[in-house]
Simulated scan of single mutants.
Amino acid sequence: MTRKLLLVLLFLMAVEMNAQKGESNFSLGFNYGFGSEFSNRNYMFTNQFYKVQLYYRLKETKHFQYQILVQPEINFAEHQLLNFYFVKPDTPNYQQKRDEFTRLKDIREYVLNCGFLVRKPIGKTCSFYVLGSIGPMITDTETERMSKGFAFADVLAVGFAASYDKFKFDIRPSVRHVSNAGLGSSNAGYNTKNIEFGISCQL
């Protein structure tokens, strides 16, 4: 599904580039980031991730620029239950689950986030922005906090970008919440603080 969506988006980019004689509204980029959970006594969670970023400029005014973006992402995480009392005795096979979940686990997450970005230019080459995004996710590992399979990833970020010619260099602190909206048996989810770095090119 993700591959088909990417092919459609690449086709739309090609049409847009051929149709416009002036400046394109599309940009394509790549981001790398990493982060960890907010301090707590229940669990440890660290992650690093890679994103493809496809931006489309919806509108530009005198003071602001408005963009939408699509972000296919793969996330490599490590998780470990620290407080085994989080798995309560009324949980079926609770002792076995305590033993399993207190072991360090590698987790892969496959995400397709869609976001909305408001950018404020600062001079001719720099800008600040606020970004919110949400999207479906597949996680390949069950933990005490979340069931394996389908979930959602929500991200709120601020960022700073500097431009050179058609290229834009980005730094983006963010907070991220992952949960499955009650679709699985476990839905405590993860909350992480992250930082990411990126480069994009106007097409």
Rank of each mutant, 00 (worst) to 15 (best):
L117D: 05
E23G: 06
F45A: 04
Y43D: 00
G22N: 10
D106A: 13
N42G: 09
Y85E: 15
D165P: 02
I171V: 15
E142H: 08
D165E: 14
R108P: 02
D90E: 14
A151L: 03
F38A: 13
F160Y: 15
G35R: 00
G123N: 07
K148F: 05
I68Q: 03
Y66I: 07
C114H: 12
P89R: 08
Q80R: 12
V87I: 15
K124L: 12
A181Q: 09
F150V: 09
K168H: 08
A153Y: 02
K97P: 00
A153R: 01
D165S: 12
S147V: 04
V178C: 06
F11N: 07
T125N: 10
F11I: 12
Y190W: 12
L54D: 01
F84S: 09
F64Q: 11
I195Q: 09
T61L: 11
L58R: 09
V178A: 04
C201G: 06
N18T: 08
G182A: 11
S200G: 03
L82W: 11
K21S: 12
R176I: 02
L28I: 14
C126W: 10
F84G: 01
F86S: 00
P92M: 08
D90M: 11
Y43E: 04
P89Y: 06
I74M: 11
H79N: 09
G149D: 07
L12E: 09
G135Y: 04
P173Y: 03
N194I: 01
R119F: 04
E16R: 07
Y129D: 14
A181F: 11
S147P: 06
A14P: 03
I134D: 02
T125P: 01
I138Y: 12
F101P: 01
P173C: 05
F160G: 05
R145C: 01
M13K: 00
E37C: 10
Q67C: 09
V178M: 10
Y32C: 01
A162C: 14
K4H: 08
E73D: 10
L5M: 11
S133E: 11
T91I: 12
V8I: 14
V178E: 01
S185A: 14
A14Q: 13
E73R: 03
G149H: 07
L69S: 03
Q71W: 03
N40Q: 14
V158Q: 13
F160Q: 02
Y190F: 15
V130I: 15
A162H: 12
F76W: 11
Q202Y: 05
G159Y: 00
D154E: 14
E196G: 03
T141Q: 11
Y129C: 10
V118Y: 08
K193I: 15
G149E: 05
Y94Q: 10
I68C: 08
R98Q: 15
H79F: 14
L10Q: 13
Y85G: 11
